[in-house]
Nucleic acid binder design. Structure first.
Length: 297
DNA sequence: GTCCAGGTCGCGC
DNA sequence: GCGCGACATGGA
């Protein structure tokens, strides 16, 4: 077992579920156990099953990580790094909480320690998942990601129904027609295959962007250079990378912000975005944690 | 059948 | 820089 520690405020159960990624394989939320389950492939090639739960302490929250089999010290270190990244445990949210405290409604929702939206262990996985959210319904996003993982990712030895997210090389090696007929990403097939081949052959360094000391502007330029990543997707990925300055404006954003602030009106994206102007570096999270009435779908 | 979904690309201006 | 049609897939 592995233990990760983070200072309060931190709400484990809320944090890992506040973003839709929790519903995409190889992640899963186990409600009875209040646990995050994930299949992860290590750099050694080994595939393990992780089971994370949060335990309250006086000033900290301990995240206990159960691994389905013994791992080496080196593998444990790799897992710890990946999990701290996925849960954003080492990002500083103090300034965000300070601003949220000025607004009683935000303060009430965030005081338990939220804002660390779940991301994947690799930027490669996050880019592909983001491409699978564009111009499509969420239920189809779930299906597409599920096909990518089950057909191309390495299985968990102890339970071959579960798979890790495929490596760039595994996707890159797929036959184009097989991919089109089996994975069925629509016109996104070409984008995903192209990206996987660029990364697998070393022509594009995606993971290097994770700790590159780039301005938001330069990081966004690097993301939009990926075929299939436009303004919405780039801003979504910037959020995942810890840049919350820009809003990812999509149909959902327009619908929610219009319904709350401009009911029965037709307003521009610019006007909608101005709602969160005062949040400065934290605009994305201000939108994300705004209280929209969840309409029954 | 038709429309459209948590958009993006490539084109013409 | 902006407007516009095409785009694969599958559910409503």
């Amino acid at each position: 077992m592995l233990t990760l520690t983070i200072n309060k405020p931190y709400d484990f159960a809320a944090s890992v579920r506040d973003h839709g990624w929790i519903s995409l394989v190889p992640c899963r939320w186990l409600d009875e156990q209040q646990a995050l389950q994930r299949v992860e492939q290590l750099s050694t090639g080994r595939v393990v099953l992780l089971h994370l739960t949060g335990q309250e302490r006086a000033r900290t929250v301990q995240i206990e990580v159960q691994i389905n089999e013994a791992v080496t010290a080196q593998e444990a270190t790799e897992l710890e790094d990946k999990l701290r990244w996925m849960l954003k445990l080492d990002e500083n949210f103090d300034e965000f909480y300070r601003q949220a405290a000025q607004d009683i409604s935000y303060h009430h929702r965030l005081k338990s320690g939220r804002g660390r939206l779940l991301r994947s262990s690799t930027l490669f996985e996050d880019v592909i998942k983001t491409i699978c959210t564009t111009n499509i319904t969420w239920s189809q996003t779930v299906s597409m990601v599920s096909r990518i993982v089950t057909h191309l990712g390495d299985p968990l030895p102890q339970n071959p129904k579960l798979h890790a997210f495929p490596t760039p090389a595994q996707i890159a090696a797929a036959d184009d027609l097989w991919f089109q007929d089996t994975i069925r990403l629509g016109y996104r097939n070409a984008y995903v295959l192209q990206l996987a081949r660029e990364v697998a052959t070393g022509r594009r360094d995606l993971e290097g962007l994770k700790d590159a000391d780039l301005s938001t502007k330069d990081l966004k330029k690097a993301l939009k250079d990926i075929k299939g990543i436009g303004d919405y997707a780039a801003n979504t990925l910037l959020m995942l990378l810890g840049h919350y300055h820009l809003l990812a404006v999509d149909s959902e954003f327009r619908q929610r912000v219009t319904a709350k602030y401009f009911p029965n009106q037709q307003v521009s994206d610019k006007t909608l975005s101005e709602i969160y102007e005062a949040w400065g570096d934290w605009r994305y999270l201000a939108y994300w944690f705004d209280d929209f009435l969840e309409e029954a779908k």
